[in-house]
């Protein structure tokens, strides 16, 4: 980790210094309320993540007209439609591929990808690796709820061992993915993770990610109460979120938790932030050099 931040720097303290008051943030200004009622199940963590994201967008004063939300397939992918922006609901696993084309074609737009654990790490894993490598100016929010919810609760690459799903009827035996370590190793300029328990803290993490010029990857530990929680007897949403919180360690915790395949030792906070060149700027500078030579 190039730069690890103390939890206090990335925690509750920082949102207090925000110029924009939390009280003035009206989430309805950023939602297509005409589509309500929404499709998310009661207790689903995706709604909390969505609120945190929109709050960050509000604080950064991003013009909705220049904001493009690119999402994939799954419960995570469907949340994009509720955002009052330019919303591209793409194909399973490929929002980062669409976003790459879009961000290169239109550097004037703010491109944010919403994806899920199955979307981003299974069918779309290759795109995460290469988006991280290129470091193009895209923010990728991956909602990790450990399960394919939309298709009825199948095991995903982040389903914890021993957990029951419809495709692991006697408990999952596959090791899980640590998406943040993957993204960092592949070169993502900004990597972070958080749970949904403290929304202001999550909002700050997302705000930092969006502000980062390059590829920023944020894993949000979300909860699927209705399907995954019920199947595994994990209680209602509050119990699930509290147990997620207690399973995490802050990024400053040290090397004891450096265990990639042990989900209950994942770190939260900003896990990597470095000054790699942003690919779009590199490409344009390179093209300008070529053009200058040609003249």
């Amino acid at each position: 980790m190039n730069e690890t931040e103390d939890i206090s720097k990335n925690g509750e303290d920082t949102h207090l210094v925000s110029e924009k008051s939390a009280r003035d943030f009206n989430i309805r200004d950023y939602l297509r309320t005409s589509l309500f009622p929404h499709f998310l199940c009661p207790g689903c963590g995706h709604g909390i993540a969505l609120r945190a994201l929109l709050w960050a967008i509000y604080e950064l004063d991003i013009d909705k007209n220049n904001l493009v939300i690119v999402s994939g397939i799954g419960c995570s992918g469907r949340t994009g439609a509720y955002i009052d922006a330019n919303t591209f609901h793409t194909t399973h696993g490929r929002p980062l591929a669409f976003a790459t084309g879009l961000a290169l074609a239109r550097p004037d737009l703010k491109v944010i990808v919403i994806t899920g654990d199955g979307d981003c790490l299974a069918i779309g894993g290759n795109h995460l690796i290469h988006a991280s490598r290129r470091n193009l100016d895209i923010t990728c929010m991956m909602l990790n709820n450990e399960v394919y919810g939309m298709t009825g609760g199948q095991a995903s690459p982040t389903t914890s061992e021993t957990r029951y799903t419809t495709t692991s009827p006697s408990g999952s035996i596959e090791p899980v993915f640590d998406a943040c370590r993957l993204a960092e190793a592949a070169g993502a300029g900004f990597v972070g993770r958080d749970v949904t328990l403290q929304m202001p803290r999550l909002k700050n993490l997302l705000r930092d990610a969006i502000q980062y010029r390059g590829f920023s990857f944020v894993e949000v530990i979300s909860d699927c109460t209705e399907i995954f929680g019920r199947k595994n007897d994990l209680g209602e949403s509050p119990e699930m979120i509290l147990s997620q919180k207690s399973a995490m360690r802050p990024s400053s915790y040290g090397n004891v938790v450096d265990e990639p395949f042990r989900p209950n030792t994942l770190k939260t906070g900003i896990l990597a932030r470095n000054d790699r060149p942003e690919y779009g700027a590199t490409y344009r500078a390179h093209a300008e050099t070529i053009q200058a030579k040609g003249k």
Binding site: V70, A105, H127
Partner: peptide
């Protein structure tokens, strides 16, 4: 995918 994304962007 990138071609579609770029075209949606207007190119």
């Amino acid at each position: 995918g990138a071609v579609l994304g770029a075209s949606m962007g207007g190119l």
